[in-house]
Each structure stands twice: as C-alpha cells, then as structure tokens.
C-alpha cells in the first residue's frame, strides 16, 4: 500500500516533468527533421545545423542576444551589488522605500514596463541597441539585489571590523572580507539576470526600434511565414550547452560549495 502510494507520487511528478519538457522534446525532434513541414517526419538530417552556420541573419540575432544578455547582466550585477551593499546600510524607512521600488519591475506587467520605457526613450534618444540594453539592465537589477541581499544579511561583520582594526583600509577590507562572503549571491544574481535577459521578448519588442533583432523578436516576426528549421537547431544547441553547464555546476562535487554549506550548517548550529 505504501509502495503503491509512493509509485503514484513519483508517477505524478513524472507527468508534470513530461508536461514541462514535451514541447522542448518536440523542438529538438524538429531540428533533425528532414522536412520543412511541422507535422510530418521526413527522416533524420543534420542539414539545419549545417545551414545554421551560414545564415547570417540568425547569427546576427544570436550575437545581439548574447551581447545584450552578458552586457546587461554584467552592468546589472555591478550596479545591483553596490546598490545592495548601500541599501543595507540605510535607515529602516529609506530601506523599505527603496526595496519597494526595487520590486516594481518584477511585479509590474512586462507590457507596461516596456511601453513606459519606450515612451521615455523616444523623448531624447533613438530606439536601438542602447535603449534595449538600458531596458534589460533595468529589469535585471532587481534580481541581482534580491539574490545579494540575503547573503548580506548572513554576513559576519566582526571579521570585517577585525580586518579594519588590523589596519586594512575600507576598500581592501571590502574586497578581501565582504566580497568572498557574498560572492555566491552575486554569481547567482548574474546568471539569473542572464537567463531573464536571454528569454525576454516583451520589453525588447517595445524598446528595440527598427533594425535590431534578438532571437526572440526574430522568431516572433517569423511566426506568420513559418519558422526556419535552423532556428530549432540553434535553440537545441543553446539548450544542450546550458544543460551541460548546469549539470556540471550543480552535480559535480565541488569543494567550494561544500565548504560554504559546511560553514552555513555550523552557523545554524550556534
């Protein structure tokens, strides 16, 4: 009876996971399909992967997407980390006000954020790569702040004070003492920002102007004429790369993480 219940539970979870991955499987299959039709199987082929590398429009869009993703995530990480350190030192009231504003881009409807930014940009600059970059930084910063903040709260400040007492100056103590303690939060903020930027469509769509295309906006523009199968090939490649990276970072036993967990457990024990 207990065994049956357990099997049912696992079966349910498997169904949910199947639901989440069914369309992905479908897209991967299509990337190997030797037929332009989306419903019939025309045999296995690697053609689309070959053609992908000579399709300059798709490669341009990929470049824009990556430049936006890494650029906006990097800028957001710097501004957001400094911001979080500063916000934490604020008086309670200012702290609450700033954190409430920080939540706006996450809570507000994407379409409203996108349109508001667009209306603001057209007052003083042409829409283009820069306006999209600024928009991505804007919706990325909150993710950085929200993942750095908890690390700052766990921070052991007495080590920092000890370093200052022993003659370290402000910035040296920050780099040597504070930064290592909040590093994991900064990293997860960076990758969260990267994920959000690469997956964004709505805000890019409203702020991009003519001539700039990310993978998302390009796909959206192609819906009516039909998606090029090269796009399935590219998406499959991106997916596999991220899958491998995530697998390595999450499941290889890495010492640094174990040490971090160990110290966390010790702190909890106190």
């Amino acid at each position: 009876m207990v065994k049956l219940k357990k099997a049912l539970c696992k079966g349910y979870l498997a169904l949910i996971i199947a639901f989440l991955y069914l369309p992905i499987l479908m897209l991967i299959v299509l990337s190997f399909n030797n037929s332009r039709s989306r419903v019939t199987w025309g045999g296995f082929t690697l053609d689309w992967y070959v053609k992908l590398f000579s399709d300059s429009r798709i490669l341009d869009a990929l470049e824009t997407t990556l430049a936006l993703g890494f650029g906006s995530a990097a800028i957001a990480t710097i501004i957001g980390t400094l911001g979080a350190v500063g916000i934490q030192a604020m008086k309670k009231r200012n702290y609450q006000v700033v954190m409430a504003v920080t939540n706006i881009p996450i809570l507000n409807a994407e379409i409203v954020t996108g349109i508001a930014l667009m209306l603001w940009f057209v007052r003083f600059m042409p829409l283009g790569f820069t306006s999209v970059l600024i928009s991505h930084v804007t919706f990325n910063i909150p993710y950085v702040i929200l993942s750095v903040m908890p690390k700052l709260r766990q921070l052991n400040l007495s080590v920092y004070e000890a370093a200052r007492d022993l003659g370290a100056n402000n910035s040296y103590a920050f780099v040597k003492i504070i930064l290592p303690q909040i590093w994991s939060g900064i990293l997860s903020g960076f990758f969260m920002a990267l994920t959000m930027s690469m997956d964004d469509f709505v805000i890019t769509y409203f702020t991009k102007g003519a001539g700039v295309n990310t993978l998302s906006t390009m796909i959206y523009g192609e819906i009516r004429k039909g998606i090029k199968p090269q796009m399935y090939a590219l998406s499959t490649l991106i997916f596999v790369v991220i899958f491998v990276i995530l697998l390595i970072t999450n499941f290889l036993p890495d010492r640094e993480k174990q040490q971090a967990e160990q110290s966390l457990r010790e702190r909890k024990a106190y």
């Binding site: 989440l20 991955y21 369309p23 992905i24 897209l27 994920t195 690469m198 997956d199 469509f201 993978l215 998302s216 796909i219 959206y220 819906i223 998606i227 796009m231 399935y232 998406s235 991106i238 997916f239 991220i242 899958f243 995530l246």
Partner: peptide
C-alpha cells in the same frame, strides 16, 4: 529553470 533556456515563443 532549464526549460526557460529554450526560447519561450518557440515553446
């Protein structure tokens, strides 16, 4: 989180 890395419009 992994599914988010396959483009959302394609999914």
């Amino acid at each position: 989180i992994l599914p988010m890395w396959m483009n959302f419009i394609l999914r």
